[in-house]
Amino acid sequence: MNPETSLPPVTVNILTGFLGSGKTSLLKRLLALPALKDAAVLINEFGEVGIDHFLVEEVDDDVVLLKSGCICCTIRGDLKGSLLDLHERRAAGRVPPFSRLILETTGLADPGPIVATLVADPVLRHQFRMGNIVTVVDAVNGAENLDRFPESSRQAAVADRLVMSKTDLADEETINALRHRLAGLNPAADILPLDDVRIPDAALFVSDIHDPTARAREVARWLAAEAHHHDHHSHDLNRHGDIRAFVLTSDAPLDWARFGLWLSMLLNRHGTEVLRLKGLLSIQGVDTPVVIQGVQHLIHKPVHLDDWPDGIVGTRIVVIAKGLDPEIVRRSFAAFVDQTN
């Protein structure tokens, strides 16, 4: 609980996707879902979403209340200012209480700096916590966007959930090729198809690592990437331009201080290149597995799992990085942290 307001922190979901990918269309459909009735949505323009038929009440110029109970707000000025303003209104009871904030980015946005904004502010970081990053990739133009625009690759690489939109407009071969490519670019993310008929699932946002009932399943998905790595006897999970996904492993329990020292040193120098990091750690003096995850410079506060997935004990960390040589990172990890030798 937050000592200042006694309100629990709001989970922030970033909804991103390249220009024309269909993220606004996804958002429109999500706004009607009862499961998101306690959510607020922060968008750039009301006009883009077309909320008129959902509208119940205009709270003021930049905040409206929707039929589902969801609050919809436009970003006024900078993101930090808008978040602080929304937090103050929530604390003062000037907007209905909400427990989740869905933040829709522009099509060219890199989610990394948005995450940094949330955690760099001494007030915001206690009021908000990061939830799933959902990235929409268009099944028709997605592959071309990944080829041509680094922003599109970065958006896909940082995602917790990848939504393939417009699957009703693409043939099966194209969809499968894109799925394969996305799985290589971001092996730890769940990939979900979406067409005009399917109702999007609120679990896209709601089911995450903060949810104790979903935590084990979430980590199992990350580690499936590591199993794939063993099956293919390759150090590189995938290479996509200069973005690579790879795995760091250690059989012996790690010293937490050594690990923290190494990772903070790595992120201090290469934080903008480490797009995502997700893993399970075996730590000396800790009986249960420790879950760690981060986006660029940010590392979330570690959480514990009750048991080792599949009974396999050991450290496995999936890293998605831009421009870093996996062999060098692996060798550095071994030299600084690994206790195996």
Partner: peptide, 18 residues
């Protein structure tokens, strides 16, 4: 520099209950 915290409270490097 990593998380923008002032003071030493609740940084991820602090520990995991070892």
């Amino acid at each position: 520099g990593l998380c923008g915290t002032f003071g030493s409270a609740d940084h991820w490097t602090d520990g995991v209950g070892e």
